[in-house]
Amino acid sequence: MVVSNQVDIQRMDETIKALKSGDRKAFSNLFENFYQALCRYSFSIIRETADAEDVVQKIFFKLWDQHSELEIQSSIKSYLYRMVHNESINFIQQKTNRSVKNYEIVSSTDANTDDVNEQMAASDLQQAINKALENLPPQCRKAFELSRMEQKSYAEIAQNMNISTNTVENQISKALRLLRIALKDYLVVYVSLQIFLHN
């Protein structure tokens, strides 16, 4: 996953150059390669399919409209994910009525995956995620879930848990660190499996 190969870096530079020059084919390819994954990521924050699609579409439109001013020093992938993340968070924060989302509620809209291997892998991963969350210290887990699942601000979480915002931040940092360690192996496999299955 680490871009250390010179050829990869060169290809990345060429792609960014093509985008900056307004190469429509390059933009079409970018859209093909990243649209669905970015929608899924946005959905994981916004929890509404149509809104997630709107956010991602808006990002691509913006990228095109401002292509001559693009300044990307990292990979285009991490740049896109950052844009989508920020836009998704803005969307959530601007919504006037924020309803509480229970991440355990099933909200399947299209379960058309026939691939048994993918289903099994997803199930294993979900079990690992559930276990990793259960193993978090209680305060840590609560702070993380209020932030991740309910998109509450540090101030709201602090008020809810009767702790300081600094403590909230530390608890969420800790949660991410512990989850990162607990899911390290699954994270690599999951990403690899996605690439394998979708290529």
Binding site: R40, T49, I105, S107, I129
Partner: peptide, 13 residues
């Protein structure tokens, strides 16, 4: 991303 999604969620885009 994965901590925010349920295994049964397969949104269609």
């Amino acid at each position: 991303e994965i901590t925010g999604l349920n295994e049964n969620e397969k949104p269609h885009f």
